[in-house]
Amino acid sequence: MNEIVVIIGGGIAGMEAAGQLLKLGYTPFLIEKSDKLGGNVAQWHRLFPDMTPSGDIISTLYESCRDANIFLNTEIYSINRLKDRYNLILSNGVTVSTRYILITTGFELFDASKKEEYGYGIYNHVITNADLEQWFNGHSDERIDSSSINSVGFVHCVGSRDEKAGNTQCSKVCCITAIKQAMELKEMYPNSQVYCFYMDLRLFGKKYEDFYTKAQRDYGIHFIRGRVSEVGENIEGKVVVKAEDTLSGRPIRVTLDLLVLMSGMACCKDSSLASSLGLSIDSDKFLQSSDNILHITSSPKKGVYYAGACTGPKTVPETLAEARSAVLEIHNSIISEKG
């Protein structure tokens, strides 16, 4: 029988890994707790830098992994370590015995309501980046009055690089996502004023800087270097934002029709998987790799591997590359075991 590899988490890392394992002739079991594959990326509308529909990415990944044993709406009931194997009992009653577990549980979007001063869940026209993507995807959202969008603000780093919020890491993708979303809104509402409130712009990836230049030059998006101090609502129900423009050295106040909070990536709150496997948690609360340079996809436990944002914020290309890398590690291990 082909070697069974259990992949926990059916986001893009898990899907890509399942596809690669199938190509190598293994038998992947892909376990996903929700009712569909694709994870956070499936909630998104289009992806930078080429504005690729995320649905296309998910469909392509699904085509390559569809022959895997896919269990949706399924959670890990228990994991027992045997001599050189892991025995997993799933919530659907299935028991799987494997020598290899690949963890691809990804991240959770930071709960923007924790940043109380921004008024998410309090003020009517305050949404998150994920809410906006859902709206781009055609879902209705009563917080967005599509007939009257004249001014929009984006708050960068919501729950990222924020000690008070308990998340000190940079989420990597929020800066470019804010620029992408700002441009998308500007395309829909060319006469609107769009503001991005940022503390630093971290635009390291391929074409990111071009995006930023384009956003300023061609779209007229206002970039204001300064953190938002508080958000309120005026008598007309519009959002009132107070911030500091640190470049001009002045406090500013803008009234907006919509405020978008760029929620960052946070570690998965459910630590039961890590504790049942005895996995270490890093200082940033994500899973700890054996080595953050040489062995990012390896855990300290034999037979347990990682891919994607379960070890920290990653872009989509980085996540996919890590999934392939983890599969290669597993493959090499299987080969060497066979000796």
């Binding site: 109380e116 309090i122 508080e230 309120g232 005026n234």
Partner: peptide, 27 residues
């Protein structure tokens, strides 16, 4: 009630029959 939306006075006003106004410069 915390710092952003303190409840201490709002709770009194609500108990005693009034409605609290949330205006932009409340804080």
């Amino acid at each position: 009630g915390g710092a952003e939306y303190p409840y201490v006075l709002t709770g009194m006003v609500e108990s005693w029959g009034g409605n609290v106004i949330d205006y932009p410069e409340r804080r």
